[in-house]
């Protein structure tokens, strides 16, 4: 395969597979995007994981534990997809904990109450789904296939989050206040998950041409707003945006201006929880080093033993 064949494959809407020829820029972009996605899954285990031991019913505890386990699974598929392009999971993890690769800035906000677990499911997973469903048709085969499974599981998590909120809204006044407070805190950060506005998104044009990306940030953000408004009404909460209203002419909801300076601050490492999230990940990596070394040493001894046995037995 060569550049011509690569372009033809893209043009025909077919998949690029790991052994196919691809431009260096495409490979680098894919590794970066998949690694950042994997890192987001792994760091994203922390905000909700903090509530597993404190979950207020055994059923919610089981649901939450299973969800956080799914996120570890998503991280695993994604690191594996990055490895098909020549990346190494250990190296990518080092880049994460040294702050050289990013993860989704949404996980740098704290989870203050159990309602946050529901709102993360509803809004954060909802936004993630809007972003990720088009990636099921990404031009890179292993990523597209991983995304299909991930999107199915994410949509399950979204329904569970929404169902938790519905249940809490039927509970006490204090619980309803807890849900509204969580919505107030997570709404704007969720809108920021779609990235900077199209006019300021430097990578969008190339990623669209390579069919790594299928819709612009602003298109996806609009879709998310339109999807969330009726859900908020059904739930009985108010989205914290006085400018949010239906625009009959556009057939979309208008919404207020996002505080882009906050997004820049959080992306550049100054969010409320950046340092703690990375410190936790670094500690787990360091604490597990002796275990990984032991596993490697044991595997090496086994290989030597097998090789010796083969030598001793005449063919």
């Amino acid at each position: 395969m060569n550049e011509q064949a690569f372009t033809a494959t893209i043009d025909k809407d077919q998949r690029i597979e790991p052994r196919d020829w691809m431009p260096d820029g495409y490979r680098k972009t894919m590794i970066r995007q998949i690694a950042q996605h994997a890192h987001s899954e792994i760091i994203g285990m922390q905000p909700e994981g903090a509530w597993i031991t404190r979950a207020p019913s055994l059923r919610r505890k089981a649901i939450l534990l299973a969800k956080v386990q799914d996120e570890a699974g998503h991280g695993l598929y994604l690191y594996s997809a990055a490895e098909t392009l020549g990346a190494d999971r250990g190296d990518l993890t080092r880049r994460l904990i040294e702050g050289r690769q990013k993860y989704s800035s949404i996980f740098n906000y704290p989870t203050l109450t159990f309602a946050d677990v529901g709102v993360i499911g509803w809004l954060v997973d909802g936004a993630a789904i809007c972003n990720q469903v088009p990636l099921c048709r990404s031009s890179f085969g292993p990523y597209a296939r991983a995304m299909i499974r991930i999107c199915k599981e994410e949509s399950f998590h979204q329904r569970q989050g929404y169902e938790l909120l519905m249940t809490m809204m039927r509970g006490t006044e204090a619980q309803r206040a807890m849900v509204q407070d969580a919505v107030d805190r997570w709404w704007w950060p969720s809108l920021m998950m779609f990235g900077p506005p199209d006019a300021e998104s430097p990578n969008t044009a190339q990623s669209m041409a390579w069919k790594i990306k299928r819709h612009t940030n602003d298109e996806l953000r609009q879709r998310f707003v339109d999807m969330s408004v009726p859900q908020a009404e059904a739930l009985g909460v108010t989205l914290p945006d006085p400018d949010l209203r239906w625009n009959a002419e556009r057939e979309h909801h208008d919404f207020g201006e996002i505080d882009w300076s906050e997004l820049k601050r959080v992306i550049s490492g100054d969010g409320p929880m950046n340092a703690e999230r990375l410190a936790n990940r670094r500690r787990a990596d360091e604490d597990g080093a002796w275990v990984r070394e032991a596993a490697a040493a044991h595997a090496a001894k086994r290989r030597e033993a097998t090789a010796r046995e083969r030598q001793e037995v005449p063919a």
Binding site: M45, Q46, A62, L65, V68, Y79, R89, A284, V291, R292
Partner: peptide, 26 residues
């Protein structure tokens, strides 16, 4: 076991520990 979530030495163990914790919770 739930207290180990996000602290395991490898992702495979992260999944295994959560899985065992879920089985026991069930």
């Amino acid at each position: 076991l739930q207290q180990w979530v996000t602290r395991a030495p490898e992702l495979e163990d992260e999944m295994a520990i959560a899985n065992i914790g879920l089985d026991l919770l069930g």
